[in-house]
């Protein structure tokens, strides 16, 4: 528990063909380097879970790692569409992609239920929309106390959670601050977990607003400085907005994408 190892070792031990994996990070602390390692290790038939599949999932989908996507918003934030995702969803390239579509509130609650050891979560959501007709994991539920009809969504308990964080100590205790998204929920909801970190330090000094994941809640910690680029790590580096713009052109064309993959990820 909280074992410190290399990125390639952790991914090799945790991620297997056919697994359900969740790489989380709400704009901030997205574990992009870990996504690239999964591509390099050639994993296939993955069910990818993520609230906001952005460019790291566009890359995994375009590289042929995914069979299914469970998500709530699939776009390139501030730029536009995800072209690899669209190509897979609309044309089945490089492989057909099954989708299970939710809202942010639904996904956040699914992780929270998973973390809480409950089979489902209850929320006020989805009613009147066309989503329940397309997504089997959205169902009405009647409150046993008031009779009010609400919405139930099943817990998410991925095989593997992967997140990036600012730092860990040598016992694998992880500290995260700034926008923490669903980091805590996805790690606690998943059967196994990997946290990549900017720094490994002797002692975690307290930080305002920081959360700590005790080492015994995490399987592996890997030291991967810059592991969230082109997203950002508060206190370490800013978001590379130019790359998010550039991704629009790189990803639009299958050949350009494959050339990028060969030169930037596979080599």
């Amino acid at each position: 528990m909280g074992e410190i190892t290399t990125l390639s070792d952790a991914v090799a031990r945790l991620v297997h063909d056919g697994d359900t994996i969740a790489l989380e990070g709400f704009t901030h602390l997205i574990p992009v380097a870990a996504g690239h390692e999964i591509i390099r290790q050639g994993r296939r038939d993955l069910t990818l879970v993520r609230m906001t599949p952005d460019i790291v999932y566009d890359q995994l989908i375009g590289a042929g790692c995914a069979r299914k996507l469970i998500f709530s918003w699939a776009g390139n934030p501030g730029v536009g569409s995800l072209h690899r995702f669209r190509d897979a969803a609309q044309h089945g390239w490089p492989a057909p992609l099954e989708i299970e579509e939710h809202s942010h509130a639904g996904m956040a609650n699914r992780y929270a239920a998973g973390a809480a050891g409950l089979p489902f979560a209850v929320l006020r959501g989805y009613t009147g929309t066309d989503l329940p007709a397309q997504t089997a994991t959205i169902k009405p539920i009647t409150c046993p106390f008031t009779g009010e009809v609400l919405t139930a969504v099943p817990a998410l308990n991925p095989d593997v959670a992967i997140v990036h964080a600012q730092r860990a100590d040598r016992d694998g205790n992880v500290q995260i601050w700034g926008i923490t998204g669903v980091h805590k929920e996805v790690v606690l909801a998943s059967r196994t977990s990997l946290v990549t970190v900017e720094e490994i330090v002797d002692e975690l000094e307290p930080r305002p607003g920081a959360i700590v994941l005790p080492g015994w809640t995490v399987d592996y910690v890997a030291h991967v400085p810059g592991g969230a680029r082109p997203s950002y790590a508060m206190g370490y580096y800013d978001r590379d907005n130019v790359f998010y713009q550039a991704w629009d052109d790189i990803s639009r064309d299958r050949d350009a994408f494959q050339a990028w993959l060969r030169s930037e990820v596979l080599s």
């Binding site: 709530s72 918003w73 776009g75 569409s81 579509e101 809202s103 942010h104 989503l131």
Partner: peptide
């Protein structure tokens, strides 16, 4: 295929 719901619903 558009991005989807996000927080909107």
């Amino acid at each position: 295929r558009l991005p989807g719901a996000g927080g909107a619903p």
